[in-house]
């Protein structure tokens, strides 16, 4: 199942400046694992050492917050857009 991760502007240095990355995975957890495997520089920004999402990181599948959809077990379908949304910065 190929889904597309939308990469926040500030993290694109870790994806060779790509705005989006296509990743396989049946759940958000699997997709995230593949994402950070393909782009290891992303990992410390998004996940804890134990492999959990950092507490201020929000992940949406299309418009839905995964925390309401089973967290890392939230299902991913082909064609879904997954966004990693940072808290905002600056004044």
């Amino acid at each position: 199942m190929a889904a597309t991760f939308l990469i926040p502007t500030v993290l694109r240095t870790h994806t060779g400046n790509r705005e989006s990355v296509t990743i396989e995975g049946k759940t958000v957890g699997e997709a995230l694992e593949s994402l950070v495997k393909a782009h290891p520089g992303l990992k410390p920004h998004i996940m804890t050492e134990a492999g959990k999402l950092r507490s201020f990181v929000n992940v949406f599948v299309n418009e839905d917050d995964i925390r309401q959809k089973g967290n890392l077990k939230a299902p991913v379908k082909s064609g879904d857009e997954i966004s990693i949304v940072p808290s905002i910065a600056g004044g």
Partner: peptide, 9 residues
């Protein structure tokens, strides 16, 4: 650069 500290840069 990716953080949860609203208001900071």
């Amino acid at each position: 650069p990716f953080h949860g500290l609203e208001g900071m840069k």
